[in-house]
């Protein structure tokens, strides 16, 4: 039957993976339970909190609102793909410097949302950062250090990109 588990392949953080899932399984659950990538957090499961945000073919999406079968053949990026070996990604580094997380539950989704923003807009205004973050709920920080970290990371990334 078409509702039965099926084998699908996709690229996750540059690695080709094949997994067998029921169509009703969200990409978030498949990442966490089938691939053991528990960095992607599942909060509200209806698209409100933003904790499960990942990139699919470079576009930030709610992985609780996308079925894993829909991601077949795509390139998925999760928070586990950010660090460069043992070195943190400049965004992660900036989050540490600015104390941009407390409990850390929202952090993976916030980071992936900001990765998309900074790729599209390497020098965002504070307003653009706040607009991008409007769909990510953080109940600890009050957002100020997250915004500061995002703007700081943009500067670091721009310096890295400069010839």
């Amino acid at each position: 039957m078409t509702g039965d588990p099926r084998a699908i392949s996709m690229t996750v953080n540059g690695r080709e993976v094949t997994l067998t899932v029921e169509p009703r399984v969200s990409l978030a659950d498949a990442l966490r339970q089938d691939l053991g990538l528990t960095g992607t957090h599942v909060g509200c499961e209806h698209g409100v909190c933003g904790s499960c945000t990942v990139l699919v073919d470079g576009t930030a999406v709610r992985s609780c609102l996308l079925f894993a079968v829909q991601a077949e053949g795509t390139a998925v990026e999760t928070v586990e793909g950010l660090a460069r070996g043992s070195a943190l990604h400049p965004l992660q580094e900036a989050f540490r410097r600015h104390h941009a997380l407390q409990c850390g539950f929202c952090t993976p989704g916030v980071l992936m949302t900001l990765v998309e923003l900074l790729r599209a807009d390497p020098c965002p205004t504070e307003a653009a950062v706040r607009d991008a973050l409007s769909g990510n709920l953080c109940r600890c920080t009050g957002y100020q250090p997250i915004v500061a970290a995002a703007l700081d990371a943009a500067t670091v990334l721009a310096a890295e990109a400069a010839p």
Binding site: M1, T2, G3, E22, P23, R24, D29, E45, F67
Partner: peptide
């Protein structure tokens, strides 16, 4: 909160 089972088609 998980979606109920369904048959999936992707034309």
């Amino acid at each position: 909160m998980k979606a109920p089972p369904f048959d999936y088609h992707r034309p």
